[in-house]
């Protein structure tokens, strides 16, 4: 991508302050999201995918603190903004869709009031035009405008999630942050909502930072995917390439962790062991205790993210032993 990225996260590091010392949940994570691009962060629970994204939006509260890195949105440093600047920045520039639509909506207000609320607060719209715009937004996400007067409990789970998306799109933000937006829904509803989002994205041209633990879903939906393990990026590549040619042993293990729908049935092993305790992460490569290909050098130092191919970066000593740059600046990550 030649143009300037919409969001650029560089060497982001987030630590949780605990009585027994700091836990580094996100460690030197860098990625970029282009305009109109869907970028996915995948990883297991505790891998830091939500923390990284929340930090990039400056939504973290203590005990989580950002200890390093920078987050540039259209060239503007989000981490340096004042609270007042942030208040106007959020939702106008980056809107959020969370997993649980039931908790995201206020049960005692109608759907229309909740959509209009955003417009009135940020755009200063009068009640009547705001409601009119709310009805347009509902139609945009495939809900009849007559539902404006419905309360959240009168809607199905899928419709509630559509309302949340309508609220997120109310101010036409260039970036949408979706944290497991369809995890609580049935597969058919999930597919419909993702199709709707993909269509709206093509129509309105926003970018998406998408978070899920469902790798199949991520590979199908995203343009580019970053795989996080224990707070560090293990691999980052275009989705199709990641699926066709995974390089990092962890990514390859993940690809053997979900059974296929077609073809002959054969035993799949998954990945032995369990994700590390982040209070005492393993020395060297975080993945080496579970890695089949690990050698003695893996315990020595943290592998850096190096270029493996076009737009394809991996952090593993075994994959490109000769390519590890002496000076980390030489092969700085760029998408």
């Amino acid at each position: 991508m030649t143009q300037e990225p919409l969001l650029s996260v560089k060497n982001l590091t987030v630590e949780y302050v605990t009585p027994r010392g700091n836990v580094r949940a996100v460690d030197n994570v860098s990625f970029e999201i282009g305009r109109g691009e869907v970028f996915g962060l995948a990883g297991e629970s505790g891998s830091g995918k939500s923390t990284a994204a929340m930090a990039a939006m400056r939504l973290l509260q203590p005990p989580a603190i950002i200890t390093g890195g920078e987050v540039l949105f259209e060239g503007q440093d989000i981490l340096a903004m004042t609270d007042e600047e942030l208040r106007f920045f959020r939702w106008k520039k980056i809107a959020l869709v969370f997993q649980s639509a039931m908790n995201a909506l206020n049960p005692v207000l109608t759907v229309g009031e909740q959509i209009a609320d955003v417009l009135r607060t940020h755009e200063g719209m009068a009640p009547a035009p705001a409601l009119e715009r709310a009805s347009e937004l509902l139609q945009l996400v495939g809900i009849e405008p007559s539902r404006l007067k419905s309360f959240p409990h009168q809607l199905s789970g899928g419709m509630r999630q559509r309302v949340v998306i309508a609220i997120a799109l109310a101010l036409k933000p260039p970036l949408l942050f979706m944290d497991e937006p369809t995890t609580a829904l049935d597969v058919v509803v999930q597919k419909e909502i993702l199709q709707q989002i993909a269509e709206l994205k093509d129509q309105l041209g926003f970018s998406i930072l998408f978070i899920t633990h469902d790798l199949s879903l991520m590979l199908e939906f995203c343009d580019k995917v970053g795989i996080l393990y224990a707070g560090r990026l293990a691999e980052i590549a275009p989705a199709k390439q990641l699926f066709g040619d995974p390089q990092h042993p962890y990514t390859r293990g993940l690809m053997h962790s979900f059974p296929e729908l077609h073809g002959s049935r054969h035993r799949m092993e998954g990945i032995p062991g369990s994700p590390p305790d982040m209070r005492q992460p393993p020395k060297g490569c975080r993945f080496h205790p579970r890695c089949k290909e690990a050698g003695p050098e893996c315990e020595l130092h943290l592998p850096r993210l190096v270029e493996l191919g076009a737009n394809h970066y991996g952090a593993c000593v075994k994959v490109t032993p000769s390519q590890i740059p002496k000076n980390p600046q030489q092969k700085e990550y760029r998408s």
Binding site: K191, E192, F221, F243
Partner: peptide, 30 residues
């Protein structure tokens, strides 16, 4: 491999598939 019921077909179309295309229309509404 040979789903017969229209609902089974719908379910299978909706299962996330890395080889799939997000825009492939589902055969039935939710």
């Amino acid at each position: 491999d040979h789903p017969a019921h229209p609902y089974t077909k719908l379910l299978l179309e909706a299962v996330p598939d890395p080889k799939g295309n997000i825009f492939r229309a589902l055969s039935a509404k939710s």
